[in-house]
Computed example of a mutant assay.
Amino acid sequence: MSAIFSFQSLAQCSQTKARAGLFSTPHGFVETPKFMPVGTLATVKTVTPAQLKETGAQMILSNTYHLHLQPGEGIVAGGGGLHKFMGWKGPILTDSGGFQVFSLSEMRKITEEGVTFRSPHDGQIIKLTPERSIEIQNTLGADVIMAFDECPPYPATHQDVEASTQRTYRWLERCITAHQRPEQALFGIVQGGVYLDLRAQAAHALTQLDLPGYAIGGVSVGEPPELIAQIVQTTAPLLPPDKPRYLMGVGTYREMVIAIASGVDLFDCVIPTRWARHGTAMVKGERWNLKNAKFRDDFTPMDETCPCYACQNFSRAYISHLVRSQEILAYTLLSIHNITELVRFTQKIREAILSDRFMAEFGHWLNSSAEY
Score class of each variant (00 low, 15 high):
5 F>K: 00
6 S>C: 01
7 F>R: 00
9 S>L: 05
10 L>W: 06
10 L>N: 14
11 A>P: 04
14 S>K: 14
16 T>Y: 08
19 R>Y: 07
22 L>Y: 03
25 T>K: 08
26 P>K: 05
29 F>S: 12
38 V>P: 03
39 G>L: 06
41 L>Y: 15
43 T>H: 05
48 T>P: 07
48 T>K: 06
48 T>Q: 05
50 A>N: 09
55 T>H: 05
56 G>V: 07
70 Q>G: 08
71 P>S: 07
78 G>F: 04
83 H>R: 10
85 F>M: 04
88 W>L: 13
91 P>F: 11
95 D>F: 06
96 S>H: 10
96 S>C: 09
99 F>H: 13
101 V>G: 09
105 S>K: 12
115 V>A: 15
115 V>Q: 11
118 R>V: 14
119 S>K: 12
120 P>E: 10
124 Q>H: 13
125 I>F: 10
128 L>I: 14
134 I>V: 15
134 I>P: 03
144 V>F: 09
144 V>G: 03
145 I>N: 09
145 I>L: 10
145 I>Y: 12
146 M>R: 04
151 C>W: 10
152 P>F: 11
153 P>E: 11
158 H>K: 01
159 Q>H: 00
163 A>W: 01
163 A>M: 09
163 A>I: 03
164 S>T: 13
167 R>N: 07
167 R>D: 05
173 E>K: 15
175 C>E: 06
175 C>Q: 05
180 Q>E: 12
185 A>T: 03
186 L>F: 05
189 I>T: 08
195 Y>N: 00
198 L>M: 02
199 R>L: 02
201 Q>K: 11
205 A>V: 13
208 Q>R: 15
212 P>G: 04
214 Y>I: 04
217 G>C: 08
219 V>G: 02
219 V>H: 01
225 P>K: 14
228 I>Y: 00
230 Q>L: 11
232 V>N: 02
241 P>I: 09
241 P>A: 13
242 D>L: 01
242 D>S: 03
247 L>F: 06
249 G>I: 13
253 Y>N: 14
255 E>M: 07
256 M>Y: 06
257 V>T: 14
257 V>C: 08
262 S>A: 15
275 W>I: 05
276 A>P: 04
276 A>T: 05
278 H>A: 00
279 G>S: 12
288 W>C: 04
290 L>F: 11
293 A>F: 12
294 K>D: 11
299 F>W: 15
300 T>V: 09
301 P>I: 11
303 D>N: 13
312 Q>M: 07
312 Q>V: 02
323 V>L: 13
332 T>Y: 08
335 S>R: 03
335 S>E: 03
336 I>Q: 03
341 E>P: 00
345 F>T: 03
347 Q>L: 08
350 R>G: 14
350 R>M: 10
356 D>N: 15
363 G>L: 12
366 L>Q: 07
369 S>V: 09
370 A>M: 01
